Simulated assay, not measured.
Amino acid sequence: MTMTYVLLPGGWHGGWVWDEIAEGLRVHGHEAVAVTLDGLEEEPAPGSASANLDTHIDRALAALEACGPGPITLCGHSYAGFVVAGAADRSVRSIERLVFCDAFVPADGDSWWALANEQYRQRIITGAEADGRTVAPRIGADPRTRPHPVASFLQRLELGDGLDRVERRTLIYASAWEATPFRSQYERLRVDPAWEVHELPTAHNVMLEAPEDLLAILTK
């Protein structure tokens, strides 16, 4: 059965971070759509620096609505766990599977700021010093990365009961980076029978460091 995969990038990254995974999914006979969130485009549109979490959820919803008929997997990396959760909650399209790829799994009322660790909160404060509206990419990052809208990190997520419609939920935990804020989340969900949990011994950008392992999980 052909699956459509909608792939959402984490902070500072665009849809390009999924290029290898998207191509691998197509080789396996599936459809793949890699989404670039507002403000993270190669040439951001005027006003996109004020994009917030709702803006990004709306972008994901538009991608879902544009998918053809058939089952959909919605996959988000890192920050995009918030976008995945919000889009799945609000979408009128049926979503077969949610994949949180080393990503936050938020509850109603959570924000990225609240769930992140102190190291990442300090990164936001320091990175936003230039204009107060966006957070600069870290020095030495991929040159395609872009300043990330601050508001999306601060806004609280509002969830209803829409997530209950998604029967299959997958967490991928990358265990080989010291700064991970996801350890306690992994420990909690790996014993939850409602979740399928995988641990990969990689750093945070799983799609770049372990593409074959990630593809195997996505196409399982």
Rank of each mutant, 00 (worst) to 15 (best):
M1N: 14
M3V: 13
V6F: 01
V6R: 01
L7Y: 00
L7V: 02
P9Q: 10
G10D: 01
G10K: 04
G14C: 01
G14Q: 00
W16Q: 02
I21Q: 02
H28V: 02
G29C: 05
A32I: 00
A32N: 01
A34P: 00
L37K: 10
E42L: 14
E43L: 15
E43C: 12
L53G: 05
L53H: 01
D54M: 14
T55S: 13
D58S: 15
A62R: 10
A63D: 03
P69L: 04
T73G: 03
T73C: 03
G76K: 00
H77T: 08
H77Q: 09
G81R: 02
V84K: 00
V84A: 02
A87T: 06
A88K: 04
S91L: 06
V92N: 15
E96W: 08
R97M: 03
A103F: 06
F104E: 02
V105K: 05
P106N: 07
P106S: 08
G109Y: 11
W112P: 13
A114I: 11
L115T: 14
L115M: 14
E118F: 10
Q119M: 12
Y120A: 13
R123E: 14
I124S: 10
A130L: 15
D131V: 12
R133E: 14
T134L: 08
V135W: 05
V135A: 07
R146T: 04
R146Y: 04
H148M: 14
P149G: 05
A151G: 07
A151H: 06
Q155G: 10
E158F: 09
E158L: 11
G160D: 09
L163H: 03
D164Q: 12
R165E: 08
R169C: 01
T170D: 03
Y173W: 13
S175M: 08
A176S: 12
W177M: 08
W177N: 09
E178Q: 15
E178A: 14
A179I: 14
T180V: 12
R183N: 14
E187P: 07
R190N: 13
V191M: 13
D192H: 10
W195E: 01
V197M: 08
L200P: 09
T202W: 03
M207K: 01
L208H: 10
L208K: 10
L208D: 09
E209A: 12
D213S: 12
